[in-house]
Computed example of a mutant assay.
Amino acid sequence: MQLAVGLVAYGVAIGIMLRAGIGVSPWDVLSQGITKVTGIPFGLVVVLVGAVVLLLWIPIRQKPGVGTVANILVIGPAAELGIWLVPQQTVWWMQGLVFLGGLALLALATGLYVGARLGPGPRDGLMTGIHARFGWPIWVVRTGIEVAVLAVGWLLGGQVGIGTLAFALLIGPMVGVTLPLLRVPEPAPRVIPTTGEVPTRG
């Protein structure tokens, strides 16, 4: 339930930030750019990009979890829901408020779905997989991937703006607050009592 709520909220948050019209995260800039070039709905592009990223897990020997597959299938349609719910903003102060509201919801949603411990999203798994496979520092891997994705998305016509910068600066600290609060505790190790007796068949 926590995973499902988190993924739906995450997608809705993406749709809200898109409607603010002041820039979005690097991966959403890429999806937005692909939508502009191909005419494919944004939500479907999010699903397709997630599936392609998951294929990149194969050479780095990453294994998906239930949360990974759900991430691919749920976030795109939920983003379309967010786009449908919120009208396009054009007044600067409303754009800022709507974007910050979407960002806050996204931070909460990230804490929910990551804290569920049912598998990373395809993009996070790509980052951690490259780190584990090649030993490169995690910040180098993340920066390299997101800069490349942002550049391609921008060239395709995705919107880069102050919201993109705000996302880059704020999402880390915000998730740093929500994740510890929402992380599901790891199950305690199962202890099998020993009596020193050898079991016998009756």
Rank of each mutant, 00 (worst) to 15 (best):
P173L: 06
P180T: 00
T164A: 08
M174C: 07
V175K: 08
I145V: 09
V147R: 07
L169C: 12
L156G: 05
L170K: 05
G158D: 01
V177I: 14
F167R: 00
L170E: 07
W154Q: 06
Q159C: 10
Q159K: 11
V147P: 02
I145Y: 09
V175E: 14
G172P: 14
T178E: 00
G157D: 08
L165C: 10
L156T: 04
T143S: 15
G161H: 04
G153I: 03
V175H: 13
I145W: 04
T164W: 10
Q159F: 14
L169K: 02
L155I: 12
G158S: 04
I145D: 02
L155S: 15
V177W: 08
V175A: 12
L155F: 15
V175T: 08
I145M: 07
T178L: 09
L170H: 08
A166T: 10
G158P: 01
M174K: 00
E146Y: 08
T143Q: 06
A148L: 11
V149W: 11
W154H: 13
G172Q: 05
V160G: 06
G157E: 03
V147S: 06
V177M: 10
G153A: 08
A166H: 07
A166V: 12
E146Q: 03
G153T: 01
G153Y: 03
V152T: 05
T143V: 13
P173W: 01
L170N: 04
A148C: 11
T164G: 06
A148E: 09
A151E: 04
A151D: 04
V175D: 15
G161R: 05
I171L: 15
T178R: 04
V149C: 11
L165Q: 01
A151G: 14
L155W: 15
I145H: 09
G158T: 00
V152L: 12
A168N: 09
L165K: 06
A151V: 15
A148T: 13
I171E: 12
T143R: 11
A168D: 13
G163W: 03
F167D: 03
I162S: 15
